[in-house]
Amino acid sequence: MNKILSKQIIATNTKRVEIASEVIARRAKAGQFVMVMPDAKSEKIPLAIVDADSKRGTIILIFEEAGETTKKLGALSIGSEIFSILGPLGMPAQMPTVSVVLCVGYGIYISQMLSMCKAYRKTGCKVVGLIGAKTKNSLILEARMRMACNKLYVVTDDGTYERKGFVSAVLPEIIKKESVNLLCAAAPVSMLEEISKITKERELKTLIQLNPTMVDGIGLCGSCRVKVEGESILACVDGPQFDAHKVDFSELTARAQL
């Protein structure tokens, strides 16, 4: 169980692993995540389920080797087993029926948008993607996003690839040009806040994927609480998708420094 079947470096310090987990693959839906412990002594961390193949019985995880735990995970070799994976967790993403959805992802967070794009595509709506990265070498999943979306925009902060600019800077133009009815986004909190401001002015419904700290992922620790319209909601059991216009961003920003 939990055997690593393949491992690839897909961008600077970023790895993609395919893991055998029949039970999780069978039930995983867009927007859900798993809690992962590389070994018995390591920290338990949440990671989005990037893709799930119920026929092969496998799931895909993508992670940036930023901290001790992701480094441990990245160091596991093909054929070895991950100590603990629990999932799928969280509520599946809402899929409101719309004609055009814009899926925005930045950096490592693009990994949370792929399953979303695929799921929307199945509902029959037009899926427009907008992905961005700091620089060319840190852009991930471009080819897969192209396959999943009807149309894909790509930007880099430094202009080393495709169009130069921040995701939030090109957003108003794309929303207008593509007549977007719904926006889904996964990005760092500060960028989500900017996106939320832009769409609020335009009264465009916006659903965001949040990534607060979690200890257990099953609703016991309360660490992942997010204030939504004055009420604390747990991202692990009621999220991780939230209505951007209802989230208290100042608190989210403060808690993101944990």
Binding site: V23, I24, R27, L86, G87, P88
Partner: peptide, 9 residues
């Protein structure tokens, strides 16, 4: 272990 009834099964 690692089975969340309702989610995993």
């Amino acid at each position: 272990t690692n089975v969340f009834i309702g989610q995993t099964i």
